[in-house]
C-alpha cells in the first residue's frame, strides 16, 4: 500500500478519511446518545437541495450544501420543538422537501450535472485538496464548539428538561448541536455521500458505546474506529475496484453486526 501514497489523490483520500472520522466520531456520539439519528438523516438528505443549488448557481456544490444544511438543521429543530406537528412527521416532510428542491435545481441547470453521483454516494478518491482544507476548517469549528459547550451538551443529551430548569438555554444549545450535525454532513458528503452519511454518524459511535461508558472515551474510540474503517474501506475499494463510500459503510456495518452478535451482549454487564 505504501507506494500508493505517492499519488496525491490517495494522500487526499486518506486525509479526508481521517478528517471525516474526527467529525463523525465527535458528533456521532451525540447523535447516538441523544437518539437523534432520524433528524440527522433528515438534515443530511435535505442538504441535497444545497447540491442542486450549487449546480444551478455554477459554484462548488459544497458551498451550496453548507448554508442549505444549516438552514435545514435550524428549521427541523425549530419546527419539531415549537410547532404542534409531531417531530417525526416534521422531519419526514423537510427531509423530502430538501431533496425535491435539489432535484428541481439540478433539472433546471442547463447541460449535464457532472459528479452528481459523487454527492449522493461519495467518492473519497476524487476529493480535491481545496475540499480537504474545507474539511479541516469545519473540523476545527466542531472541536472548538464541543470543547466550549462540553458540559452543556452532556446535560442536554442526558436530560434536556433538567438542563432548561438549571437556567441553561437548552433550546438554543440544541439548535447549535443540530448545526454541528449539519457541518458534519458537509464534511462527510465527499466521503460517503448524502445517502450514506447516516452510517458514519451512527456506526462508529454505536460500536464505541459497547466498549466504554465515558462520553470522552467514546469520542476518541469512535474517531479511531472511523479512521480504521475509512482507510480499510479505501484500500478494499482499490483492491476490488468498487465504490469507496459504499465499501466503507459495508465494512463498518459488518463489523458492528458481528461484534453485536458475538461480543456485544457482554457490554452491559461490563458496567454492572
Amino acid at each position: 500500500m505504501m507506494e500508493l501514497l505517492h499519488y496525491e489523490f490517495v494522500r487526499n483520500a486518506i486525509a479526508a478519511g481521517i478528517l471525516a472520522s474526527i467529525a463523525c466520531g465527535i458528533i456521532g456520539v451525540y447523535v447516538v446518545v441523544k437518539r437523534i439519528v432520524f433528524i440527522s438523516g433528515g438534515i443530511a438528505h435535505a442538504s441535497f437541495g444545497g447540491v442542486g443549488l450549487g449546480y444551478y448557481l455554477g459554484i462548488n456544490p459544497i458551498f451550496g450544501v453548507l448554508p442549505f444544511s444549516i438552514a435545514s438543521a435550524l428549521s427541523m429543530g425549530l419546527v419539531s420543538k415549537r410547532s404542534k406537528i409531531p417531530e417525526d412527521t416534521a422531519i419526514g416532510i423537510l427531509w423530502a422537501l430538501g431533496m425535491s428542491i435539489g432535484i428541481i435545481f439540478v433539472s433546471l441547470t442547463p447541460g449535464y450535472a457532472p459528479d452528481l453521483m459523487t454527492y449522493l454516494f461519495g467518492n473519497i478518491l476524487t476529493v480535491p485538496f481545496s475540499d480537504v482544507l474545507l474539511m479541516l476548517t469545519l473540523d476545527t469549528v466542531i472541536i472548538l464548539v464541543v470543547y466550549s459547550f462540553y458540559k452543556e451538551f452532556l446535560a442536554l443529551c442526558f436530560d434536556e428538561e433538567f438542563t432548561e430548569v438549571l437556567g441553561v438555554p437548552a433550546e438554543r444549545l440544541y439548535l447549535v448541536l443540530l448545526c454541528l450535525i449539519a457541518l458534519t454532513v458537509v464534511v462527510l458528503i465527499r466521503v460517503v455521500g448524502i445517502i450514506l452519511v447516516i452510517a458514519l454518524l451512527t456506526i462508529p459511535a454505536a460500536l464505541s458505546r459497547q466498549f466504554t461508558a465515558d462520553l470522552k472515551k467514546m469520542m476518541m474510540l469512535s474517531i479511531l474506529f472511523g479512521a480504521v474503517f475509512s482507510i480499510g474501506g479505501i484500500w478494499l475499494s482499490y483492491l476490488f475496484d468498487v465504490p469507496s463510500g459504499a465499501t466503507i459503510v459495508l465494512v463498518m456495518s459488518l463489523v458492528y453486526l458481528v461484534h453485536s452478535l458475538v461480543g456485544g451482549s457482554g457490554s452491559k454487564e461490563q458496567f454492572e
Binding site: 446535560a155 433538567f162 438549571l166 466504554t212 461508558a213 462520553l215 467514546m218 452491559k268
Partner: peptide
C-alpha cells in the same frame, strides 16, 4: 425519564446540578 444506558457517571450527573452557578 432518562436512558439508563446513557454513558455518564454518578459524579457527572451530580455536577450537572451546578451548571446554573458555573455559567456557560
Amino acid at each position: 425519564l432518562f436512558d439508563p444506558n446513557f454513558p455518564i457517571t454518578v459524579w457527572d450527573v451530580v455536577l450537572m446540578g451546578r451548571m446554573g452557578h458555573t455559567g456557560l
